[in-house]
């Protein structure tokens, strides 16, 4: 385990929270978040691991081009993978670096687009609902859905490590967050009133779910680290996905709590007013460039551009093109593009 990369992951998580606070309370926390992100990028480079470069690019792009909480969070999740995986001498190539840049831009565009939508619906805990849905989905999918059976482990076969304590916390987090997400969704779908019992209960459960998710990530990390290098490497992607989903919920809850105060609305709306399209167009351009470099790397390395890596990069690039036109389901299309880039990067590092 790389402690330097783990420190970078923690710093990026802090940068994410600072960016979220900065969107409500002015420039100082946001600037501090940018500084933390740049410092994290330097820490990641200092690990001397080529596998850390995509995470470093994500952190730098988040700090300099797209300083918002979601790109910082994604960079933090990438740093978790670097921290847990054993060092490797071979580099990831150029494609993951460009994909990382595209991902930072796409994540920023997604967050900006979501904020623009939320600005038109005051009092709606949309970000918390989204974070809750992401956490429920990731918990339901991780380890083949074993959390639903109150079991959780990492690895497979003889090297599998069962995590009974983590499974209990994650199972409870799943139930509480699911109830909170459903409660707020019910209010959205059914109640024309600005507030309702379902919304009130849903908000409280989402706050509790965020706490349990954070606890679950900590317990899982602690138990996985006791399982040795093999368990750490096997659980790296799962733990990163869990941390990302938990982070999304925590950020959503922070935004939800900030929106309860009258001060927050006008200031956060002013930062969300900028146009999403330029950032999204740059993200699509970077994704297309990533597809081109994947093709070149495949041709040079394997003798053909007809490889799975090119197909994945091409898919992400096409979803980027599909997210650009100003038509319906804009937020869903940007989300799809972001997830495709996330999957591309997760498969490449």
């Amino acid at each position: 385990m790389s402690l330097v990369a783990a420190a970078a992951a923690l710093a990026l998580a802090a940068a994410s929270v600072l960016a979220e606070i900065g969107s409500v309370h002015g420039r100082a926390p946001a600037l501090a978040g940018r500084g933390l992100a740049v410092a994290s990028a330097l820490l990641l480079v200092a690990t001397g691991r080529p596998a850390a470069w995509p995470a470093a690019v994500l952190a730098v792009a988040a700090a300099l081009v797209a300083p918002r909480s979601l790109p910082y969070l994604v960079a933090g999740a990438a740093a978790v993978v670097v921290a847990l995986r054993p060092p490797s001498s071979s580099g990831p190539g150029i494609t993951p670096l460009i994909a990382a840049l595209a991902l930072a831009l796409a994540a920023a565009a997604f967050q900006r687009s979501a904020e623009e939508r939320a600005a038109g619906r005051p009092g709606a805990p949309g970000a918390a609902m989204l974070g809750g849905a992401a956490l429920v989905l990731s918990l339901a999918l991780l380890d083949g859905g074993n959390v639903l059976r109150w079991q959780f482990g990492v690895g497979a076969g003889a090297s599998r490590v069962e995590l009974p304590g983590a499974s209990l916390v994650l199972g409870v987090a799943l139930l509480v967050t699911l109830a909170g997400t459903l409660g707020t969704s019910v209010h959205f779908l059914a109640a024309p009133a600005p507030t309702s019992q379902a919304l009130s209960l849903g908000r409280r459960l989402l706050v509790l779910g965020a706490g349990l998710a954070g606890l679950g990530v900590a317990v899982t990390g602690a138990q996985v680290s006791q399982g040795g290098e093999g368990a750490l490497a096997a659980g790296a992607l799962d733990l990163a996905a869990l941390a990302l989903a938990a982070g999304l919920l925590v950020l959503g809850v922070l935004r939800m709590l900030a929106d309860e105060r009258p001060l927050a609305r006008s200031e956060s709306a002013s930062t969300a007013g900028a146009d999403t399209k330029p950032v999204l167009a740059l993200a699509a351009a970077a994704a297309l460039l990533a597809a081109a470099t994947a093709g070149f790397e495949g041709w040079r390395g394997e003798g053909t551009y007809a490889t799975d890596a090119v197909a994945r990069a091409g898919t992400a690039a096409l979803l980027g093109l599909g997210a650009l036109p100003a038509t319906r389901l804009g937020l869903a299309r940007i989300a799809l593009f972001t997830v495709a880039l996330l999957a591309l990067l997760a498969g490449a590092v």
Partner: peptide
């Protein structure tokens, strides 16, 4: 194919201009 992808990337980047 490589040239086409680079052209597409350039075009998408131009779309970012106001």
């Amino acid at each position: 194919a490589l040239g086409g992808l680079l052209l597409m990337a350039a075009g998408a980047a131009l779309e970012a201009r106001p």
